[in-house]
């Protein structure tokens, strides 16, 4: 047990818990994207950023990967944290404006504008599909390929993988491809339509990225037979 303080609440957290688990246990809300229970924490999307430490010496860490330690002081909703999260979400949306999950998070967190040039990519490199494939489906068919600005997720040699059983787990877990948002336009990257309407507007949107076993290969994760690389 380590005694930690989250937003002024003292709690004895069991050894091995992360800050995120402890905060959720207390009912405190921390937005997450690349964290899913049942998969190992990754710390890739940075949305669960919280502030640790006291006084002058505080720093921002990802709650999902930070283990609790004796005397830790965590704050989950300071100005610095909220602004950092908004900036991170702006960057994520600029990468992939067509993701409904990201657009919903923007509405929830009150992101009003995206100050970055949208890239209209279809992957935010959260690694969820890679972890899903390995940890829940025991397939290890998918992985990160290349690095830096050429980083992408694919199967070895961009070929249909022998390990892949077409379970669709990667698509199910993907925050960018399964639910597509059609509200994002070049002139206004943020959609926000679901926020002002009781009728979700995007549930009927289907394209090749949300293939659900149409196996078009466009999402780049499972099947690429015949696709030019």
């Amino acid at each position: 047990m380590s005694r930690i303080t989250i937003d002024g609440i003292e709690i004895d957290a069991p050894e091995g818990w992360t800050v995120l688990e402890t905060a959720r246990f207390l009912g405190l809300e921390i937005p997450t994207l690349c964290y899913v229970e049942g998969l190992s924490p990754w710390g890739g999307c940075r949305l669960c950023t919280v502030e640790i430490g006291q006084g002058e010496r505080t720093k921002l860490v990802t709650a999902c990967t930070y283990p609790v330690e004796e005397g830790l002081v965590v704050r989950t909703a300071t100005k610095r944290v909220v602004e950092a999260r908004k900036l991170i979400l702006e960057l994520l949306i600029a990468q992939c404006p067509t993701s409904k999950r990201l657009q919903d998070l923007a509405a929830q967190m009150g992101v009003q504008e995206v100050r970055f040039k949208p890239k209209w990519e279809n992957c935010i490199y959260c690694g969820l599909c890679v972890r899903m494939c390995e940890e829940q489906m025991m397939a290890k068919a998918l992985g990160f390929v290349d690095r830096g600005n050429k980083l992408r997720i694919s199967t070895p040699f961009d070929k249909s993988s022998e390990e892949c059983r077409r379970c669709g787990g990667c698509m199910y877990i993907c925050p960018a491809c399964t639910l597509r948002c059609e509200g994002a336009q070049p002139e206004e990257v943020l959609c926000g339509r679901c926020e002002s309407s009781t009728q979700p507007t995007c549930l009927e949107v289907h394209d090749n990225y949300a293939c659900w076993m149409g196996l078009t290969g466009d999402c780049g994760t499972c099947v690429k037979e015949g696709a030019e690389k």
Partner: peptide
Amino acid sequence: PEAALQEVAARLDIPLRDVYGVATF
């Protein structure tokens, strides 16, 4: 060569996707 990478994955018992990941990194 592709055949060699597949051989490495099999003999070292490392998933091919990790071998490929390192080779492209």
